[in-house]
Design a protein around this nucleic acid. Sequence first.
DNA 1: CGCCAGGGCCATA
DNA 2: TATGGCCATGGC
Length: 214
Amino acid sequence: MNLSQIYQILYKAYRTQGWWPAKTPYEVMVGAVLTQNTNWGNVEKAIDNFRGRLSPEYIDSLDLNELAQIIRPSGFFNIKAKRIKALNSWFSDYNYSIKTASAENTVKLRAELLNVNGIGRETADSILLYALGKPVFVVDAYTRRIFSRLGFDLPKEYDSIKAFFEETVKPDTKVYNEYHALIVRHAKAYCRKKPDCADCPLSGFCLKIGIDNI
DNA sequence: CGCCAGGGCCATA
DNA sequence: TATGGCCATGGC
């Protein structure tokens, strides 16, 4: 089993996922922070609290506490409010323009995002791929869990895992977009959800090992 | 009731 | 480099 074959199996099972689940690229950026170690349902509640007003300018108009109260359902709301403010400060350097930001070099953008307090590797890559359309592979806990169970001896470091996928799967924004979305879709349906792996499309290739220590 | 969720920062060794 | 504590809500 190679990464392309696994992709094909997941795609045949779940088809196109249409990620990221957001109305605008800016909503992707904010959502990427809100979903840090957080159930997506809680993120949706927080997004809904913006009542369709979510924009860089609106975030600017709010003070830290006001923002924190709006995003309260997503948890870690005080620290996330600061992170969203910090992210907004970075985005202001591009005049809040997705087009302007996405015209920049990917390596430069990633370095800048990682320099924003509260934006780590996964959050930065999610923004690069799903908001700015850059061909970067997003690694998350689900990726580690699923591929470990499939028998891949993945490196520990985020960047090493990312490099493994990017060296194996030809850089393609559309493919990277779907691949990560399919991994999340699959993980939510199986593994912890259905430890017995019943009806799992990857069941025949899965080691069905413990999932407590990934 | 306890566990978990689409992480990241910081202090410590 | 690698743990451990911390941040916090809501669903099950």
